[in-house]
Nucleic acid binder design. Sequence first.
DNA 1: GTCTATAACCGGATAGAC
DNA 2: GTCTATCCGGTTATAGAC
Lengths: 232, 232
Amino acid sequence: MFKTMESTPENETKAQRTRALILETALGLFREQGFERTTMRVIARQAGVSLGNAYYYFPSKEHLVQAFYGRTHAEHLEACAPVLSEEKRLGRRLLGVMRAKLATIDPYHRIAGDLFRSAADPESPLNPFGPESARVRAEAVSLFERTLDGSDVRLPKDLRDELPTILWFWQMGVLLFWIHDRSPRRRRTDLLLERTTVLVVRLIGLMSLGVMRPVRGSLLRLVRDLREEPAS
Amino acid sequence: MFKTMESTPENETKAQRTRALILETALGLFREQGFERTTMRVIARQAGVSLGNAYYYFPSKEHLVQAFYGRTHAEHLEACAPVLSEEKRLGRRLLGVMRAKLATIDPYHRIAGDLFRSAADPESPLNPFGPESARVRAEAVSLFERTLDGSDVRLPKDLRDELPTILWFWQMGVLLFWIHDRSPRRRRTDLLLERTTVLVVRLIGLMSLGVMRPVRGSLLRLVRDLREEPAS
DNA sequence: GTCTATAACCGGATAGAC
DNA sequence: GTCTATCCGGTTATAGAC
């Protein structure tokens, strides 16, 4: 932070390099050995630093996971870009975005259970509903905003405002299913995804109808109220 | 099991009493001190047994949690009985059952996060979707069956068959929210509950209509398909 | 074969010296 | 910023008592 950097020829400080090295080592080991089985000691040893040093950069094993989230989200954005720019039909766009998500995280399916386990704790910084995740969450929601806005479907304003959040919940549900999915090549998740996408699009259509005003009203008010006060 | 019990004046064996003692001690400590902060060593000491002995009866801390589940489910059934026998309106019945659930587990709200954390792991025997939980799950679903059947609402058969499972999912969602709810006296959960109950009843009404046949069809088929093959 | 006790082991996390 | 030495608690091994 307040370092007087007199002589760092590279465009990275030593600290940054050490940090990156530890993170790379950790992610590699997580993917190969699993999360629980990868101990902090092994990460440190393989990265060539001491255990204490690893904890200097990442205050807990969970903090390594946060870094992981950031990375896969960036990859997801990249993987989404084509379908978002080329496709107009809402169903296709949603399916494309969700499939890209699943494809991005698929290499980490083994450890998804462990990660989710940490994330499930309300006190955990990894808790997707918690304040520490606000930023990632907002980015994920805004991705659905773009998915909606770039489509050929016109929505009533009230629905348009809350729908991205609802779709994010849908994504969380699909991910929850994916985590528990033991079928070969995660076929069941894909089934769930295809079927629910159709339903979602159909429900959006239904909810846009005049008759649905009252139901839609209560639903949207509910989502808004619950979203406003972000727990605690 | 195959014990030749020649002389046990009490209707409990010593083993049963020891087991019960450890469980009681553990649950009490969990409630007072929290789950993580209650160590197996303290449980054992306070119960007046050795650490090894505690592990003899409960192979892991998670097994204590399973016992806890069984207990609260039984309490829930008891707490539901009045509303189920006295009330005919579906909304009231659902609300009563759900409120009874929340009331039953409320003393354990502090530790709910930790418990949920264990339960979130797909490999964990506590995972509510896993095979080890099949029995509890079936009981919970059948409670919703009774909630529906005793009401004054008549449902199309296809809906009636799948709805209990769907309501169980709803319950899981509410519980998830409850776990993360930090508002005083869990007001936000109650808000969610009241509002979603109205929605659920309304949606059931809507879904029973002729126009909804196609949507209902896909929805129910989806639930059925995903339910059939119980992961793995 | 049922039960109890003691002494480790292992890995996440911390303290404090340099 | 980096290290070594420890702590702490879940879990296991094992020895033996009833």
